[in-house]
């Protein structure tokens, strides 16, 4: 199997993220496993269910205040229904329930996705809005845009039995009461296609927020995502 030099890109991005992270006063690191189950239905409809969990392995709150130790943080369960609206685009809406400690957080999700297919890679744009509701907290409204590129590491498409590189880059505008925050995510991942309907991706999910108020907080999650279409 031939692996191009571009296979080293996730490592370079990881090092860059760590470098940026050292400049931040607060950071958290841990793991972010996820399972995505997808089901195609008739007339261009489809369903996506997702389970994602977050575990923290280390954090740094302020100078001299660091701790390590594995902490289970939360689990997300979501169900999204999508309808193809064109050859390469679809609209979707769904609901997410987040279980965090003893709290239950509710989130409504709406999204539009456009997947562009080029001769040597695929590019996906996602525009989404969501509304989060939690007891004793103001509702949070977010408007987000994500661009995702899938680059095969061998040949012109990520065929079964081949590795690929996937890079997500997302901007999330969050409004809560009179507060506004911008979160930026960069997620380089190495994927393996067992079949066209069964893929595994692993990499780093780097997030930064609070930097508009000089209170930047970085998050480094090691991801492992499994995508299955039934």
């Amino acid at each position: 199997m031939n692996i191009k030099p571009s296979a080293y890109l996730p490592v370079a991005l990881l090092l860059l993220a760590v470098q940026l992270g050292t400049a931040q006063s607060r950071w958290q690191a841990g793991t972010l496993p996820a399972i995505n189950l997808n089901k195609g239905l008739k007339n261009g409809w489809s369903l996506n269910t997702k389970w994602e969990s977050r575990q923290r392995a280390a954090q740094h709150r302020a100078a001299g205040e660091s701790d390590t130790g594995f902490d289970y943080l939360l689990s997300d369960f979501s169900l999204i229904g999508a309808k193809k609206t064109g050859l390469n685009n679809s609209i979707a809406a769904g609901y997410l329930i987040r279980l965090r400690d003893t709290r239950v957080i509710h989130r409504a999700i709406q999204q539009f996705t456009l997947v562009q297919r080029y001769s040597r890679f695929r590019l996906a744009h996602r525009i989404a809005t969501d509304q989060t509701f939690e007891t004793d907290a103001l509702p949070e409204f977010r408007v987000r845009y994500r661009i995702a590129a899938e680059l095969p590491l061998n040949g012109e498409a990520a065929d079964p039995g081949e590795f690929y590189l996937k890079i997500n880059h997302e901007y999330l505008n969050a409004f809560q009461g009179r507060e506004y925050d911008l979160e930026i995510r960069l997620v380089p991942q190495l994927g393996y296609s067992f079949t066209d309907r069964n893929k595994l991706e692993a990499g780093l999910d780097y997030r930064i927020r609070g930097f508009l108020d000089q209170a930047a907080e970085g998050f480094y999650w090691v991801t492992l995502s499994w995508f299955v279409k039934i």
Partner: peptide, 20 residues
Amino acid sequence: LLPLATAAGQTKYEREYRIK
């Protein structure tokens, strides 16, 4: 979930890869 992954594997076979 593992049986689902096996079931999902029954697809058309087509593969293209670079050679030296």
